[in-house]
Simulated assay, not measured.
Amino acid sequence: MAKSNDSPKCFGIPMKWVSLLMLVAQTVSVVFAMRLSRTLAVEGPRYLNTTAVFFSEVMKLICSFLFLSHEVGEPATAAKTVLQTFRRSGVELLKVSVPSLLYTVQNNLLFISLSNLSGAVYQVTYQLKILTTAVLSMLILNKALGSTKWCALLILTTGVALIQLPRGEAKEDVQKGDSVVGLAAVISACFTSGLAGVYLEKILKQTDSSIWMRNIQLAFFGGILAFIGCYVQDGKKIAENGFMQGYSGLVWAVIALQAIGGLVVAAVLKYADNILKCFGNALSIVISCIMSAVFLQEFKPDLLFVLGTLCVLIATTLYSISAIRWEVSCGARGEEIGKSCQSDLVARTH
């Protein structure tokens, strides 16, 4: 009982449940808000996803600096630490620019996918990032995948395949946009997500930088690359209607929700554990499907979708539990590195 009383609380509620509720709310909200912002009728030009990605990186940079300031004691010390880290090694900074580029491309792909797929189809299909991350970890980091994980990945692939099976006219009636473009975008995002995450994990194993310092570096380079991408991809549109064309409260909400995603996951991993995080992700998928069908009315679940979603939920749970059991059985001390990597990964892939 003493352990329970000593655990952190917010308004009398244990922080593990508060952080879990925040995770579910953030995950569902960012999908719902982003989909709404890309499909809602607007007067004049719609906002550019490239500029939204840029502002999201800027907000992540600010948030990460604030958390670093809290960690080291004061903003002046944090600023000095950042400058020392940036001056330490040019090669180290170049290494960070690689995942920054991948994350920038990935975030743009997520906007494209949610412009063409319903929130429910996107949310379930995007779980393929587990498959791409696992395979790339095996190829790049020489990680071994046990039989349980391979079984989970097979179930996951089967579930997504069931969801993506052609439905004929019924599917076109409830879905706006080009489903082929949306599917290509979300699958490409899964690959960039996996590659960036694996590469970042490799970097984290070679450095003693805190997660907030690493996030500052990623957001800094990500912001520069995103700004360049704005003019490379949408330079003509920016010249015609301005950098912040089509911006509204909803667009700023999307940017803010994207930026705080990783902070929420960090809280879950700090106050709870991966089991609760897995439960939160599963609950988020179910709620996203319900909201997509009821509120946006862009999605009508059929038997194949229900079966596919169940497969995805089972697969993600099975994979997560298998990973935790492996860490415990091996006594893995690299768990904190993995958590830091996962926290940053979710910050940039929601």
Rank of each mutant, 00 (worst) to 15 (best):
F55Y: 13
S4H: 11
S248Q: 09
R167N: 07
L313F: 04
V121L: 14
L139A: 12
V254Y: 00
E336V: 09
E71N: 01
V58K: 00
Y271P: 00
P166M: 07
K16C: 09
A185R: 02
L101T: 04
C63M: 08
K171H: 12
Y126R: 10
T51V: 11
T39E: 05
A144C: 10
V91S: 14
I216R: 00
A76C: 11
K277R: 13
L40S: 09
M138D: 11
L94N: 09
F191T: 13
E92L: 08
D234G: 05
A76L: 11
L131K: 01
E71A: 01
P166I: 07
E201D: 15
A25N: 01
C190V: 08
L23G: 00
M213I: 11
G44Q: 07
G168H: 11
D208E: 15
F54D: 00
K300C: 14
C311L: 12
V312C: 12
N281D: 15
T85I: 07
L114A: 04
A226L: 02
V18Y: 05
N274T: 15
F243Q: 02
F279P: 01
L20P: 00
V105E: 05
S7C: 12
L310K: 04
Y126G: 05
M213A: 09
Q164L: 15
R214G: 03
G223W: 00
I130W: 07
Y231D: 08
A219W: 00
S248T: 08
R348H: 14
F86C: 13
I290T: 03
F32I: 07
P75W: 03
F191E: 06
S113T: 04
N116S: 07
E201W: 08
M59C: 10
V268S: 01
D273W: 02
